[in-house]
C-alpha cells in the first residue's frame, strides 16, 4: 500500500492508502477526498481531477504527457506543478506523496 496525502484548498490534510497500479484520482474518489470531481472517469477528457504536486515530489511524479498538457488547458489556475490526477499511476516509490487540490475544478 502507498500512502497519499491530499491537502484541500483550506489546508485540511487527508492521508489515504492507494493501491499500486491504480491512479491518484481513483484513490481520491474511492476515499471520498473532496475537490476532485473526475467527471470523465479518468479518460483524460475533462480536467476536473486537477491537482498540484508538492514541490518535493515533482521530479519523482514526472511531467504531463502532451495529451495531458492539452487537457490542462481547460483547467483553472494551472501552475507549473499542475497535473491531472487520473494520469498519475500509484507506484511503490510514490509512498508518502503529497498533492494539493484546487478550490475549484473547471
Amino acid at each position: 500500500m502507498v500512502q497519499i496525502t491530499f491537502i484541500d484548498s483550506r489546508g485540511t490534510a487527508r492521508t489515504v492508502e492507494g493501491e499500486a497500479g491504480s491512479t491518484v484520482m481513483e484513490t481520491a474518489i474511492k476515499n471520498g477526498v473532496p475537490e476532485i470531481e473526475a467527471e470523465c472517469g479518468g479518460a483524460c477528457a475533462c480536467s476536473t481531477c486537477h491537482v498540484y504536486i508538492e514541490e518535493a515530489w515533482r521530479e519523482k511524479v514526472g511531467e504531463p504527457s502532451p495529451m495531458e498538457e492539452d487537457m490542462l488547458d481547460f483547467a483553472y489556475n494551472v501552475q507549473p506543478n499542475s497535473r491531472l490526477s487520473c494520469q498519475i499511476k500509484v507506484r511503490e516509490d510514490l509512498d508518502g506523496l503529497i498533492v494539493r487540490t484546487p478550490d475549484r475544478q473547471a
Binding site: 502532451p66 498538457e69 492539452d70 490542462l72 488547458d73 494551472v78
Partner: peptide
C-alpha cells in the same frame, strides 16, 4: 492569451 506557448 494562452497559458503556455504550445497550442493544440
Amino acid at each position: 492569451l494562452h497559458r503556455r506557448s504550445e497550442f493544440r
